[in-house]
């Protein structure tokens, strides 16, 4: 036995050095995998909610503003979820890299697989309506979330920008209607010359979106009336139970209109 081997064996015995226990090492490995998996899951949530928010928005609103489509798109991107996706993407990348064999894979491959998993999971969450449920739960229970996320209803509470939406509570000879907007105010809407989307029904309790121009604090001239389901969701009614978006129904219930 060489001097150095002898010294090492003596040290191992004197200091009672033992090999780290297998279960501890396994726990460490599993935690790395679990954290990586959890990050992909959160990434999936972020994608699911983002798809829901993006498809729930009414992309026609750029017509009502001076902005072009791309400026509107930039305005509607759910930045909060995008940041969550990036942060958890980095965490999952780091964790996969730190698994036993993680170093063998090229970085771009890990990123691509992580994105594909998040997209797949996000797509499933969106299609099953869980994306919406997560958004709704956060919107209802987490105050800062309401400030961070531009909701569809928020986009239609801006009469000064030519957008308003609400529930019809009165019809006056097919020329004027009264709506209660999401903010709770009542608005008299002149619909005489308004272009109506074929799906729009001027009926009490119908929720509609109106593009136009505010004349006074409670008087608005409509140029275009759209159904609440929005142009981009017209053909996706299967996503909503009873053909109505549940979120808005609940918003109305919560505010006890």
């Amino acid at each position: 036995m060489s001097e150095i081997s002898k010294k090492i064996i003596e040290k191992i015995k004197d200091e009672q050095i033992k090999p780290n226990e297998r279960w501890k090492l396994l726990m460490r490995d599993y935690s790395v995998w679990a954290l990586g998996g959890f990050s992909i899951l959160v990434g999936g949530f972020a994608v699911g909610v983002s798809i829901y928010l993006l498809t729930d928005h009414d992309w026609v609103i750029y017509k009502a503003t001076e902005r072009n489509f791309w400026t509107t798109a930039l305005m509607l991107i759910p930045y909060f979820w995008l940041i969550i996706l990036i942060i958890f993407g980095i965490i999952s990348f780091y964790n996969v890299r730190h698994t036993k064999r993680g170093y063998k894979y090229q970085g771009y491959l890990i990123i691509m697989i992580s994105i594909i998993f998040s997209l797949l999971l996000g797509g499933i969450l969106f299609a099953t309506g869980l994306g919406e449920k997560i958004d709704e739960a956060l919107y209802t229970n987490v105050k800062p979330y309401r400030q961070l996320i531009k909701h569809r209803s928020d986009m239609w509470q801006t009469p000064t920008k030519g957008r308003i939406a609400g529930k019809i509570i009165e019809i006056r000879e097919d020329k004027n209607i009264v709506i209660v907007a999401f903010g709770g105010n009542e608005w008299l809407i002149d619909i005489t010359d308004a272009k109506r989307h074929p799906a729009v029904r001027i009926k009490i309790d119908q929720i509609i979106m109106i593009l136009g121009e505010p004349i006074q604090n409670d008087y608005f001239i409509a140029t275009e009336i759209l159904p609440w389901m929005g142009n981009n969701l017209q053909n996706k009614s299967f996503l909503f139970k009873n053909g109505k978006p549940p979120v808005i129904e609940r918003i109305f219930k919560q505010r006890a209109y």
């Binding site: 090492i8 050095i17 090999p19 064999r101």
Partner: peptide, 17 residues
């Protein structure tokens, strides 16, 4: 350094794949 390396190897023998 060699001594520390061997000690580390010994401590991590269970982690050897």
């Amino acid at each position: 350094i060699l001594q520390d390396s061997f000690i580390k190897m010994y401590q991590n023998l269970n982690a050897f794949d």
